[in-house]
């Protein structure tokens, strides 16, 4: 289903209609030249920004999880190749997550411009 369009007719009556295609929407507007166009993307954009906030919050929670994991891995009485590999992989995961976190922060900064 094509995105719906909120149209405000000259009479002030608010119509909401879902279109089957871009052509269908265009044809409807051509057939009703009196209809004043309204913004159709603000709601979707707001939804996007909300989802971005959710994803970024999730990023911060993962930082805490990884920090706890690293602390436990460092303190446990386990030695040898496997133990060293485990601690190394946790350290690598922390670095990878830092990239995720930096990327998320950069997106949040741009978010302000389009909100």
């Amino acid at each position: 289903m094509y995105p719906s369009s909120d149209h405000i007719a000259p009479t002030g009556v608010h119509h909401e209609r879902a279109y089957d295609s871009m052509e269908d929407m265009n044809q409807h507007i051509i057939n009703h030249p009196g209809l004043a166009a309204a913004c159709t993307c603000q709601t979707a954009t707001t939804g996007t920004l909300n989802h971005l906030d959710t994803a970024c919050a999730s990023t911060e929670r993962c930082v805490t999880s990884l920090t706890d994991t690293a602390a436990l891995a460092a303190s446990i009485d386990w030695h040898g190749q496997a133990a060293a590999l485990m601690r190394d992989k946790v350290t690598t995961a922390i670095r990878m997550n830092e990239d995720v976190r930096q990327r998320a922060h950069a997106l949040l900064a741009i978010r302000q411009e389009v909100a």
Partner: peptide, 20 residues
């Protein structure tokens, strides 16, 4: 991934928005 799906819908909305 949910955000990515949402972005697909938003992109369509922005591209078809009569105000823009």
């Amino acid at each position: 991934a949910t955000l990515s799906d949402q972005l697909t819908r938003t992109r369509l909305h922005v591209s078809s928005c009569p105000v823009h």
